[in-house]
Design a protein around this nucleic acid. Structure first.
Lengths: 234, 234
DNA sequence: GTTGAATTTCTTGTCGACAAATAAAATACA
DNA sequence: TGTATTTTATTTGTCGACAAGAAATTCAAC
């Protein structure tokens, strides 16, 4: 799978076995190392990570709770499909969470929050400069997650992070079609959002977040319309 | 605990052991049969339900994923506290979900959805007539959950149901202070919402949902202000 | 009587094994 | 040759047991 598997040989503390395999599976699912539909074999995973099936099952239960894997009763558990037929519900929720979290960030952010957000934006900017599409997707997610954290509403951050992760999966499918000019626009939009959050301009933050969300949704829809590899589902 | 425990003697099908104990624990937590802070002993539960610890642990992992229980590493797992200090984040998210789901229901509802919603409203009305506060709380939750289902956005319904369940816990703490006149107002508000959903009046549904949410939030806040038993936390 | 260390107890996290349920393969039959 | 049925095989769900960690208790020293 990946090189982190080597770390499994190192002795792990008691109690973090499940978290260990959870993190590995989660990252691999979001990065599409495990594409939708991939079966997950408990026994195979167990011997690869040199641990019992018990912590692996616990990780799978948690992943199922977040909707990242689907458990067929008495049969295999597979990586959840991306529901292309109902993407509009995803876009709708994503847009709303963009707006709400950015609004709240403008209202409740502390100076430390602002620092973290700026650091995340710097990482995103570097990824854009380097034309590294994969890093762009990841750092963009971290940027907005930091804004959500500044809003200090765990209900929103929870749903938003789930949506952002799902968005990473979708974007990763089409990452080859990323151009060079559009992302730079995102950098500028991010800067505007930071300015609004710093100025505690709630209305402005909402307007920018909405525009930003529309922008991203439109780009994903364009990519899907342009790329007709799997028109129905994966 | 309750009489459902007796059903544990009946033979269960393979694979639904975890769901069985999950449902029991979930209901008991939401109904405050297990109040916040209650420790959950795996071994005790295992022998009471006459099953192994494995399915019980799976249920606990799922409950932890939904935030209903908190697992202290290497120590006991307890029923999660109600965070009275940050109730405003709960009210904020609840209000937003009320609005969004009702809007979407007005937009996408089918005739079958409307039937289900009406049935739930009838149950709520009966509970109000019977002055059964506990049934009121439960049927009110089901009514709004049905509206959310009609909106057909699983991201919203997921968060909303979590919020409604948490609201049930909060309301149940103060259910003794329920009067007789206020709930009747809720019945009428529900009827108005149904009418707006039937007429596909999105703007009206939004307005009614917002007013309804404000109403409920205000009542809970009044109850908390009036009842000073546990001013800080439970 | 109080404080601190050692011991015991109790609960959890992990393991290996077994049995049920399903999928796959092999066989029988038309 | 194609289809139905039995057999095999694989994978999951469950179990009992054991060991690591933390809390509670005991014991000792001052």
């Amino acid at each position: 799978m990946n090189d982190r598997t080597a770390a499994s040989q190192a002795e792990r503390k008691r109690g973090e076995g499940a978290k260990f395999v959870y993190d590995i599976l989660r990252d691999d699912i979001i990065d599409l190392v495990l594409p939708p539909g991939s079966p997950i074999d408990e026994v195979q995973l167990a011997e690869r990570l040199s641990m019992s099936r018990t912590p692996i099952r616990e990780a799978l239960v948690r992943l199922a709770g977040e909707g990242l894997v689907t458990t067929l009763p008495n049969r295999s558990t597979v990586v959840s499909n991306i529901d292309f037929l109902n993407l509009h519900t995803f876009f709708d929720a994503l847009t709303l969470m963009y707006r709400v979290t950015t609004r709240l960030a403008a209202e409740f952010r502390s100076d430390e929050d602002l620092e973290i957000i700026r650091a995340r934006q710097a990482a995103f900017s570097r990824a854009v400069e380097a034309h590294d599409a994969l890093a762009m997707i990841a750092t963009n997610r971290d940027f907005h997650a930091a804004i959500a954290e500044a809003g200090r509403n765990p209900y929103y951050t929870g749903l938003f992070c789930r949506l952002l992760d799902e968005g990473r999966r979708i974007l990763r499918i089409y990452y080859s079609s990323f151009g060079d000019h559009l992302p730079r626009r995102y950098v500028e939009e991010h800067e505007d959002m930071i300015a609004a959050i710093e100025a505690r301009d709630v209305a402005g933050a909402d307007r920018l977040a909405r525009a930003h969300a529309d922008q991203i949704v439109r780009q994903i829809q364009d990519m899907i319309a342009r790329d007709r590899r799997q028109p129905i589902a994966l």
